[in-house]
Design a protein around this nucleic acid. Sequence first.
DNA 1: CCTCCTTTACTCGTGCACGAGTATAAGCAG
DNA 2: CTGCTTATACTCGTGCACGAGTAAAGGAGG
Lengths: 207, 207
Amino acid sequence: MTSRRKVSNLLGLAVLAALRTRPMHPYEVAGLLREWGKDNDMKFKWGSLYTVVGNLEKHGFIKAVGSSREGRRPERTVYALTAEGRAEAEDWVRDLVGRPEPEFPRFKAALSVLGVLHPDEATRLLNERLRLLDERVAAERAGLAALDMPRVFLIEAEYDVAMRQAEADWIRSLLGELRDGTLTGAEAWREYYATGQLPPDWSQPPE
Amino acid sequence: MTSRRKVSNLLGLAVLAALRTRPMHPYEVAGLLREWGKDNDMKFKWGSLYTVVGNLEKHGFIKAVGSSREGRRPERTVYALTAEGRAEAEDWVRDLVGRPEPEFPRFKAALSVLGVLHPDEATRLLNERLRLLDERVAAERAGLAALDMPRVFLIEAEYDVAMRQAEADWIRSLLGELRDGTLTGAEAWREYYATGQLPPDWSQPPE
DNA sequence: CCTCCTTTACTCGTGCACGAGTATAAGCAG
DNA sequence: CTGCTTATACTCGTGCACGAGTAAAGGAGG
């Protein structure tokens, strides 16, 4: 069990949310999520969908309410939300919103081992990332502005833009500090790649 | 294979980074990572450590260079970084830094299904999250300031603080918009919970 | 009306993540 | 020196994630 939740994959939450509108079969759920752009908000993998639906059923959050069959296609099971499922969805969202949990973005991990690269290369890569982020932020902002749609439906997207923007700003400031030498320890880093010698405190940072 | 990388767990990257200093056995690696505070930067699970080390060896990124034994304790295999491992680590970091990939924070997923809650409850929870975030940011900032240590070693932590801060700011602005009604569609949301009736465009948002 | 491509709708196997369990050793209290 | 707790150092099994594969149906072109 990955967490204390019976079904841990967030796709499960999306499925529950979709089934709030009406009973559906899995593929229909997928279509709706696609239409809602949810595949942009969370990992959406076909393989996971059916496992997740199966688990939701196993734990009583949804139940099969019939199956339609057209021609000789595989039978499509239609699922409906149960009372437990409705409660689970609400509780899950409450948890996710109310309690910030530590997350581990890949970029953070990368920053923590940035020392494996030469400072000049690191700088170059950070500039590259910055460029891509700026582009994407601009594109997404434009996309959002073009879409005339009540903004409540778009808060995740607005959040996303805000976060990317913040990351871009942070990188810009880091690059600034690297440029004008106000980032303490940066010379030691450079030194290491010049002389092959670690400053004494690299393998055991003080305190 | 989760991605195109032979070993996909980021813990593997940390292991490679640690082995750059000198050959070590897995538990020693773990200790070093702890000491470096890496367990704060990425998911660190004991179960994963040994799987990851095994896979790194299988793919030739590290190799056993002997095994020490003390008393009748289980034998401890000491691993060293290979040339391929060194290259892999560098390439991996290059990738992570240079190419922003879409990520799916849990809060983003939560925002995308925020509609399952009553707007008042959502507001309450957002306020709660905001409070916790502000607290944590303050604490981390204080912690960082207290630690007199070259800042190059702390960029991940500084990044983290900046991101949390940005999130807090974004939530504050969202709450503001909810309060003074400048978030379009918010009345429809409220309406739905008052009348039980979905506005016509909930199940199929236009465009 | 036949063939080929695309869309629909899944299934299956591999491989990994991770928590819980285990076993030895070291410290220390009485 | 005996028994208890804490730290050390893993192992193992379950369960899930996910990509690749499959197969029927619909459509479109000749």
